[in-house]
């Protein structure tokens, strides 16, 4: 196979298509296969040893980086949510506090007002009672005086009409009798 090849194939080139169809020419088998083996093995070794690890490394690194960044973002998001919820809780507490203070103040004020009103009312009630007792006393005194005035008046009238000096005791008796009749 080897010997006639180098000399033999150079000649029919010029004959063109009259020769055997080149892709099926048996003379072309060995040089193509040998060089295919060379180049393919070379390419395989270069790619698998040098190039592909390099590309894979970069892609892996990027993947890791993205994963790390996503994890960090997730963590920050969690922290934000925690901060937000604690803020909301503080707000709610403050609100509850404020309303309780307001209620307390209102209750206190109401209590004070009630106390003061009660004091005023008591004071007024005492005054009223005093006034009523003094009125009662005055009335009683006035009523007691009426008998004396009536006696005096009767003494004067009896004296003027009959020159009889009616004593006070007499008149009192008479008045008591009259009063008793009535």
């Amino acid at each position: 196979m080897a010997d006639p090849v180098t000399a033999g194939t150079e000649v029919p080139h010029d004959a063109g298509h009259a020769k055997v169809f080149p892709p099926l020419d048996p003379n072309n088998v060995s040089p193509q296969l040998i060089w295919l083996a060379f180049t393919f093995v070379a390419l395989y070794v270069l790619l698998s040893r040098v190039v592909l690890p390099r590309i894979g490394e970069v892609i892996e690194e990027r993947k890791d980086r993205i994963k790390r960044d996503l994890a960090a973002a997730e963590r920050l998001k969690g922290e934000t949510e925690k901060a937000l919820s604690s803020y909301e809780k503080a707000l709610a507490d403050a609100r509850a506090n404020a309303s309780s203070i307001a209620r307390q103040t209102r209750d206190q004020l109401t209590a004070e007002v009630d106390k003061e009103r009660k004091a005023v009312e008591d004071h007024l009630a005492r005054k009223l009672a005093d006034a009523e007792t003094s009125i009662g006393a005055t009335k009683a005194k006035a009523l007691a005086s009426v008998k004396d005035i009536a006696g005096d008046t009767v003494t004067a009238i009896v004296g003027a009409l009959s020159n009889v000096n009616a004593t006070k005791d007499d008149i009192d008796r008479a008045l008591a009798a009259a009063g008793g009749n009535k």
């Binding site: 196979m1 080897a2 090849v5 180098t6 003379n27 072309n28 060995s30 040089p31 193509q32 040998i34 060089w35 295919l36 060379f38 180049t39 393919f40 070379a42 390419l43 270069l46």
Partner: peptide, 16 residues
């Protein structure tokens, strides 16, 4: 065996 560097070999080397 005939292992001539041909135009085919050239393009294989170029491709690599």
């Amino acid at each position: 065996y005939d292992a001539s560097f041909t135009n085919s070999s050239l393009f294989m080397v170029i491709a690599v």
